[in-house]
Every structure is written in C-alpha cells, then in structure tokens.
C-alpha cells in the first residue's frame, strides 16, 4: 500500500472505475489494431510491406515518422522551460502578488488543446509563404506545450508544499535552494507524470496534423495547407488508393493506442498521490 511520506498515514486508494474504463478502452483499441493488421496481412504481406515502406510522399510510414521526429525534438525544450518557469512561479517572493494571477493564466492557456494552436500556427506559417519543416513544427509544438508543462510542474511543486517551504525558510534556506533541494526531489514522481502527459499531448497533436496533412508531411514541400485536408476527404477524393489510407488509418489507431497507454500510465501514477494530497 502506498504510504504518504509526510503524514505516515496510508494513502487513500484511488477509485478504481476510471482505471477499469481506461483498460477496457485500451484493450478495445488494441483489439481493433490487431484486427486491422490481421486483415492487412491476410491481403498479402508484400503489399503491406510496400505500403509501409518509405517509398515517396504517399508512404503511410510518414505520419509515424513525422510524429516521432516532432516529439523527440519538442519534448525536451517544452519540459525544461516548463519546469524552470514553474520553479520561479512556485515562489511568491519572485512573482509577488502576481503569482496567483499567473497560475490562473497558466491553467487557462494550458487547457487550450495544443493541437488547435499548433495547427493554426502551421497554417498561418504556410499562408504567409513559409512552408514549415518538421523541425519548425517541432518548435511550434514545444512552444504551445510550454504552458501545459509549466502548469503541471507548478502543481507538482506546490502540492502540499506550504509547510515544507515554511520550515525550510525558517532554517535560513534561500528560495531557490528550497525549490531545488526540497521541492523538486519530492515532486519527482509527479513531474514524471507531467512529462508523460505533455509527451502524449505532443504525440497526439503531431499525429493528428500528420494524418490530416496526408502522408506528405515528411516531404513538407508546400504540403500545408494544400494537402491539409481531413483524412475522410482524402479517401473520398482519392478512393483509388484506399489501401494506402487503410494503412494510414491503422497507423492512426496505433498512435491512438500509444497515446492512451501513455496517458493511462500518467493517470495511474498520478492518481494515488493526488487522491491523498491536497493543496495547502
């Protein structure tokens, strides 16, 4: 049983229902993927391999590659800036009375689905004649996810931290020393959950845009906004190559499962702590 290190009382168990619902959905999605992959395999392995292979702009591997590339590039700066901003914002002596308003603003900005902001930014870039590369897209995703990371890291640092901060301050510790030596190590588990949540946001956003833009994203030579049609429109207008979109749909499902699994891990890791620890 989890032990609340501060009170020495056993932590309250979180309600199991969301976990059960999540597990059921995850298994359903996994089952769907298995069925689709099985169907594809039944239609001939060589055909599937050639469809998945990197053989040009219609390659179904494109969205997967684009998503991975954007995530690897966007997560470290988003995480680093978010944690550092949260370290500053967690101390009222740095931001004074503005700290409260700043937290509210972070919650508000962080709650906007980043995929919308990122997609708008990419379309705006294309509209002014700048055709974003994947690196540019990663940069956009890093920036739009910073408020979310800051908000989550801030919560991780400040949850049930008031008494600890008070005690450490009374012992003559400077504010940043308290954050680094007391609050950060204590918030490690919650910060890990925050990384996973932000990673899933980036993966989800990048995958959505990659799929919307068709398989052209890695090439990105003027791919946006001309090819930035919804997948359904692609399939409707280019029905002759529906097999390729079948594979794209399969990759989308795989991504969805990946996101659900990561978010599930984050939720499960965060739930016992958040259930037993209230903000002071």
């Amino acid at each position: 049983m989890a032990i609340d290190a501060l009170s020495d009382k056993p932590a309250r168990m979180f309600r199991p229902l969301p976990a059960v619902v999540f597990a059921a959905c995850a298994w359903l999605l996994c089952g769907s993927v298995i069925v689709i992959v099985g169907w594809l395999l039944a239609n001939g392995l060589p055909k599937v391999v050639s469809a998945l292979g990197p053989r040009g702009p219609e390659s179904a591997i494109g969205p997967l590659f684009a998503t991975a590339y954007i995530t690897v590039l966007a997560l470290p700066p988003a995480a680093a800036v978010g944690v550092f901003a949260a370290m500053g914002a967690s101390d009222v002596r740095i931001f004074g009375a503005a700290a409260g308003s700043m937290r509210s603003a972070l919650s508000l900005v962080g709650s906007v689905p980043t995929v919308i902001v990122a997609y708008a930014a990419l379309l705006a870039a294309a509209a002014v004649g700048w055709h974003p590369s994947l690196t540019g897209a990663a940069f956009v995703f890093a920036i739009v996810n910073m408020p979310l990371m800051t908000g989550l890291a801030l919560r991780a640092l400040t949850t049930r931290a008031a008494k600890l901060r008070e005690v450490a301050t009374a012992l003559g510790a400077p504010p940043m020393y308290i954050v680094i030596s007391v609050l950060l190590p204590r918030a490690r588990m919650r910060l890990r959950s925050a990384y996973i949540i932000v990673a899933t946001q980036i993966i989800g956003g990048a995958a959505t845009i990659a799929i919307l833009a068709g398989a052209n994203v890695p090439a990105s030579r003027g791919a946006l906004p001309i090819h930035a049609w919804p997948l359904a429109v692609h399939i409707w207008t280019r029905g002759s190559s529906a097999d390729v979109y079948g594979v794209t749909a399969a990759s989308a499902l795989l991504l969805a499962v990946l996101i659900w699994v990561l978010q599930g891990i984050a939720q499960l890791r965060a739930a016992p702590e958040s259930a037993s620890q209230e903000d002071l």
């Binding site: 501060l6 008070e166 450490a168 009374a170």
Partner: peptide, 12 residues
Amino acid sequence: VGMVFARPTMLP
C-alpha cells in the same frame, strides 16, 4: 532567529 512551529514538519 530560529523558529520551531506548533506542528513538527519533517523534511522528506
């Protein structure tokens, strides 16, 4: 000027 509070809080 050291301070001891009503409720002892141990650093983790």
